[in-house]
Amino acid sequence: MLIISYLLLSLVLFLFCFFKRWHLFCWLSYSVFLVCFLAIIPLPGEDKVKYRAPTQVVFRFDEYRFIQLTGYGCQGRMYYVDDQKQIYYELARHSAKVLTEPFAHMPEDYIFIPSTDYSDIDFSQDGGRSFSSFHIETIENMGSYHPNYNTVENIVVMNNQFFLKDKNRDIYRSPKPYGTRPAIISATSEKFFEDSIQYMGLRWADRPQTMPTIPANYTGWRRWQCDPSLKIPITVYNRYAPLIKLQTQLRHLLGVTDEVTHEKEAD
């Protein structure tokens, strides 16, 4: 209550000096009133914590090459990064998601990155300097079939070839790395296209009966990894902090020991 007494007394003195036209005392009493008012007024007194989208490495080919995702809930912008060759390529501007199926990818020039619904595949044959998209072939003799996350069992990329094990269509594969036209088809589709020149020759020879085995010296990951709860906190410091410090000093000068309850600053 002492500070209230100072405030009222300085106000009374100011009004008295104002009507008496004692200008010097008027300014002095007004200054005391302002000091007391500053010492008592509540100020927003808390720092705020906000959050920004985290950046996570969601898949690693080796020590230098990896896939990076920026966004909340394991969804957002996706990049292919090669620290050694200084490559930073944006695969998706937004809404990209991580794969949940087993996935192993040897660090080679040919790179295959499927979308989570397997509607398309981002493909590079120059070590990630450029990418293009193409679709898994779905046409079959009796109609069409499309693999999805419920049917895909395993994905392996090695020797610059893509292999996908599906519960219903066995092994999908891309051709051997000759030429420039990418494609991924199943054994069933190969039978349907066996007379098509596009799927003939050395590129499509030696259909595997089992999924290839990743070498023991493979240092990359065998699954994508992501923490959906991750957020990056940012402290927004209280802009009134200097005034609060000054207010504390004024209250100490006036002999006031009780604390002022500062308000929370609205977002």
Rank of each mutant, 00 (worst) to 15 (best):
I139K: 09
L13G: 14
L253W: 11
S124I: 00
I4S: 11
Q56M: 05
D206K: 10
T235Y: 01
D62A: 07
G220Q: 10
H252M: 07
G179I: 02
K176L: 04
I4F: 07
I232S: 09
L230Y: 10
R173S: 02
V58I: 10
P242D: 10
D258Y: 11
D166I: 02
Y218S: 08
P147I: 08
P228G: 08
P114T: 07
G128W: 00
L246A: 15
V236C: 09
L250H: 13
P242Q: 09
P182W: 00
N238K: 12
S95K: 15
D258V: 12
L38D: 11
H146F: 03
T261H: 13
K264I: 02
R222Y: 06
F163S: 07
Y64L: 00
T210Q: 13
R223D: 06
F61G: 10
R173P: 00
S95F: 06
D82R: 03
R93V: 01
I232V: 12
Y64T: 04
A53C: 04
K165Q: 12
A183Y: 02
K85C: 05
L7T: 05
D83A: 14
N238W: 09
R239F: 02
A205K: 05
L230W: 05
F19W: 02
D62Q: 08
G71D: 02
I4M: 08
F37D: 00
Q209T: 10
W221G: 08
R52I: 09
E137G: 05
L250E: 11
L7G: 02
M211C: 12
G179K: 04
